[in-house]
């Protein structure tokens, strides 16, 4: 039995739909995860011990437990608690964002702490307040250093979004599984899905490489 390109062709509309949803989920979760991550990273650096500890616990939980488990907790527990029924897309976005935020928080913290403390002192000595110094001096430099690890995290996030197939979110992997189940074939759907993920993750890497070059100051 040969490789059935005809079946792949038949499923192309579904793969396209799935890819669009995967991209959508990834973009939303990346943005939410980054904003949350910044907040959590700053929170963990807070001077007040109880506040710092709270964020420390958050990071420990989301980094120390499987995303798969977190997804189930959100899908079957948290989302129904708030809206009364399950919703795959919502659960995926929430679980991916919360999970990514924990990793991104650590990337922000490392990025901010890697900036020489003289930069903060120089900014404060000119009369900028703490927030102004962070916004204008520390973060722009930290973000430049954070691009490579952030790129990694975004790539991981795109790949992890495939777990959503399990909670019936009709993204890319979901359609791969659907095709496999429909025709009792393995290679055609999963190789196709793998290649599409590869295109997505490679594009993300290229995009961040270009961003990094554009921010160079030499």
């Amino acid at each position: 039995m040969g490789f059935r390109f005809d079946l792949i062709a038949e499923y192309i509309p579904f793969f396209l739909k799935g890819t669009m949803l995967t991209i959508g989920l990834s973009i939303v979760a990346t943005l939410l995860g980054t904003v949350l991550g910044l907040g959590i990273g700053l929170g963990k650096m807070a001077r007040k011990k109880p506040i710092s500890l709270l964020f420390h616990c958050y990071i420990t939980f989301f980094r120390g437990t499987p995303l798969f488990v977190q997804l189930f907790l959100v899908h079957f527990g948290v989302v129904p608690l708030f809206i009364g029924h399950t919703n795959g897309i919502l659960a995926t976005i929430i679980a991916l964002s919360l999970n990514a935020a924990a990793y991104i928080a650590e990337i922000f913290r490392a990025g901010i702490q890697s900036i020489d403390k003289g930069q903060m002192e120089a900014a404060r000595s000119l009369g900028l307040n703490h927030v102004g110094a962070m916004k204008n001096v520390i973060l722009p430099q930290a973000i430049k250093r954070m691009i490579p690890p952030l790129g990694n995290e975004f790539v991981v996030l795109i790949k992890d979004s495939s777990l959503a197939a399990i909670v019936a979110t009709p993204e890319l992997m979901y359609w791969g599984r659907a095709m496999a189940g429909n025709y009792f074939i393995v290679w055609e759907p999963y190789i196709t899905v793998a290649l599409i993920y590869l295109v997505l993750t490679t594009s993300m890497s290229l995009l961040l490489n270009r961003l990094e070059r554009r921010l160079a100051t030499e």
């Binding site: 020489d116 003289g118 120089a122 000595s125 722009p140 430099q141 921010l215």
Partner: peptide, 14 residues
């Protein structure tokens, strides 16, 4: 009102 100049310059590299 109080300007400061540092040993390590501390210019903003970006």
């Amino acid at each position: 009102e109080v300007g400061m100049v540092f040993q390590q310059f501390n210019l903003f590299p970006h």
